[in-house]
Write a protein that binds this DNA or RNA. Structure first.
Lengths: 256, 256
DNA sequence: CCAAAAGTGTTTAAAATACACCCATGC
DNA sequence: GCATGGGTGTATTTTAAACACTTTTGG
């Protein structure tokens, strides 16, 4: 199907396929070169950026919708993802942006379910940066990572949603283990610490960090050390997946 | 307007007034005679019980919808209320219940937006039991308090929603002060402790509790003591509203 | 004056924090 | 061999938990 036809169908008949007035937006966090990143889409014609989002199929669990969106934008599957807040300002509507979009796309439509107000549920995900191949959706011209400290202008309240996701991530850090989806399979303790420091945006004590993390039991140290590195070679670690999953559910209650 | 006419209008034309596919359910907690209570509605004709819920006006913030519902069911205004989770099972639909309801009400309708699937946002509220006058809505036959340990059969996934609200309340207890909306203006320390014990469902040490609470600074002790009581008379306390509000926002991070 | 509940304080254990020392490696 | 980053251990402080004693009041 041609792009124009797809878009026309989405705008004209999407409400037969999706739930109305409700959407899902994903904050996809990644970690690369010691920096926390977020995956954003550039709205076609408009130029400003947006969170990867989408709609819920009439017979689909909202969690599955979020996972589907993540999968479509990144190719990544089966990661830790959770809703963190619902955004419901009465003026949350893409009417203007979508009308401009249709005009530029050469599509004429007077009415569309997409001109209505939407309530959106924010989902946050942590993904392995190296496994992601960013793919724009069909209303976007680009899809790429942004450093968390260098976020471009965003549509609607998306900046607000992003900030809330980050705040939530920092809170969660005390109760849930983090890293399994953000780091490669093998990693060193300094790398894990950098991740925590990046998310929390402050320095942590190297020795206390190691003790705290190891006391949770979610890590296993390998006999292998990192090669070809200046100074003393750090050990590699990997997550003990059983205990990691257990800690994800039950919480592990530690503070940093 | 007659009841039948109101109902017919809600079912036939409600979608012009409210957002579709999305609803709000309120878990209204109260505290009375040392027991934690929840306010429930009895679905007309069906007999089983339901959380007070409703829909979001097309131009209304979701938080305001929740407050409006609370106000309508209890007469209570201006209390602490917050969303805690979104429930989105694909089979969340009142189709059967609503069809039966219409049939019993003697109203004929083949189609209605209320037969569709709904995603619902759970809101929890803490209210002053003594100020509440429970009022059923127009699809319910009764509205009353239930002890948290004695919950009747509930429709759909409402029991699940209630459980999640309770879990959430217990979690929040460590970060947010509780009691301002649940207790009368003046109260004694043992009363406040009972409230905490009831919510957490376990005993707390009297002395450590007092120290911990007082260290947060959200309470002010009055010179007055409780009169006409056997044994030593306890002091009255009241909340320092400024510090209470501050702690509500900033969190106060204490464990019990 | 005694039982029962409330106020205040101390003692002990655990946990968070700060800090010191040694080890390995590339330059 | 020395600067740098990494591994391991210990002292200190802070906080939580357990426990004891005194005070007040009604019967």
């Amino acid at each position: 199907m041609s792009w124009e036809k797809e878009i026309r169908q989405l705008f004209a008949e999407g409400h037969e396929k999706f739930l109305r007035n409700i959407s899902v937006d994903c904050i996809i966090f990644g970690f690369h070169e010691n920096e926390l990143k977020v995956l954003l889409l550039q709205a076609k014609y408009a130029g400003s950026w947006a969170l990867p989002g989408g709609f819920i199929l009439k017979d689909e669990h909202m969690d599955d919708a979020a996972k589907r969106i993540l999968q479509e934008r990144t190719g990544v599957d089966d990661v830790y993802m959770q809703q963190f807040y619902v955004f419901s300002e009465p003026d949350r509507s893409n009417k203007k942006i979508n009308k401009l979009f249709l005009k530029n796309a050469g599509i004429e439509l007077e009415e569309s379910w997409l001109f209505e107000r939407f309530i959106t549920v924010g989902y946050s995900a942590l993904v392995d940066f190296s496994k992601v191949l960013p793919v724009p959706d069909n209303i976007s011209s680009d899809c790429k990572w942004f450093n968390i400290h260098d976020i471009p202008g965003m549509i609607l309240d998306h900046r607000n949603i992003l900030d809330k996701a980050l705040e939530n991530l920092r809170m969660q850090l005390n109760y849930h283990p983090v890293g399994y989806n953000l780091l490669p399979e093998k990693f060193t303790m300094p790398e894990l610490q950098k991740l925590y420091e990046t998310i929390l945006d402050r320095k942590l004590d190297r020795r206390n960090f190691q003790r705290k993390i190891m006391s949770t039991g979610i890590l296993k140290r390998l006999d292998e050390t990192k090669k070809g590195v200046a100074h003393k070679a750090p050990y590699y670690y990997k997550f003990d997946l059983r205990k990691y999953q257990k800690a994800l559910k039950g919480g592990m209650g530690f503070e940093l």
